[in-house]
């Protein structure tokens, strides 16, 4: 990443902080406290399961909402408010700006998720259970959430390069949902006996981001081990996908007339 993108990224992060994006943390904290109190009262030996499930799901949902809603506006807002004009008159290439915005939002989400993770750890601690070795897989689950969101931001930015934030948000959400059910789509294709449908389903399956492998919340709740191969496969997959999406976005954006 160039120094130019770095400067843009830091400013994007600063904007998020000043726009009080981190306020969601308060909500998250309240949720965790509520859950801990509640679980403490039931106390039938499923504290761990409930807290982990709830915590990780909340991290994932909060992250997703932020990724989509900030992501679709990242570029659009700068064009609409014309803040981009004086920026692009500097020795910055458009792709550097785009990468900077991307990294800036990713940084925002990572910081946010780290803080939420601390909250989750505190909740686990509060329900009075020593940390186990298998809890390391919680970290893996969180890492996968980050990878998933890295992908979602790239999708959001891609759409926002040629449509309004409203439509981009809808498209991104649709892609996300389809990506979560990518396997089901493929299985559905197998039921139909038509080569054309098979081909179409294959194409859709391989172009959609496959989010299925990123969700290990259930497995972690049951203290299952996460295979190491999954970690690097997911990492590689996200990296590749994000790179392709950013390339496509940069190609579109580099040629577009700013209104």
């Amino acid at each position: 990443m160039s120094g130019m993108s770095g400067a843009v990224a830091l400013n994007t992060f600063r904007e998020a902080v000043r726009d009080r994006v981190l306020y969601n943390l308060i909500l998250f904290a309240l949720l965790m406290i509520g859950a801990a109190v509640l679980v403490g009262q039931i106390s039938i030996g499923i504290e761990r399961l409930v807290i982990i499930n709830l915590g990780l799901s909340a991290i994932s949902v909060f992250g997703l909402v932020m990724a989509i809603f900030i992501g679709v506006g990242l570029v659009y807002k700068e064009i609409e408010k014309r803040t981009l004009y004086s920026l692009l008159a500097r020795p910055v290439r458009r792709w550097e700006f785009l990468v900077g915005k991307y990294v800036g939002l990713l940084l925002t989400l990572v910081v946010n998720i780290l803080l939420m993770s601390v909250g989750l750890a505190a909740a686990l601690f509060a329900v009075g259970r020593p940390l186990l070795r298998s809890d390391l897989s919680i970290l893996t689950a969180i890492y996968f959430i980050v990878l998933e969101l890295a992908l979602v931001i790239a999708v959001a930015i891609f759409f926002s390069c040629f449509s309004t934030p409203m439509l981009s948000a809808l498209f991104t959400l649709a892609i996300y949902i389809a990506g979560v059910f990518a396997w089901e789509i493929r299985d559905f294709g197998a039921l139909v006996h038509s080569p054309a449908v098979h081909l179409a389903v294959r194409v859709v399956y391989y172009t959609l981001p496959n989010f299925h492998n990123f969700n290990i919340i259930a497995a972690v709740g049951h203290a299952e081990r996460v295979p190491f191969s999954l970690i690097w496969q997911n990492t590689l997959y996200a990296l590749l996908y994000v790179t392709l999406l950013l390339l496509a976005s940069a190609t579109v954006f580099s040629r577009s007339n700013l209104k």
Partner: peptide, 11 residues
């Protein structure tokens, strides 16, 4: 370059 009716990051 000074854009017309410039607007900058207001935060």
């Amino acid at each position: 370059y000074l854009p017309e009716q410039p607007y900058f990051y207001d935060y």
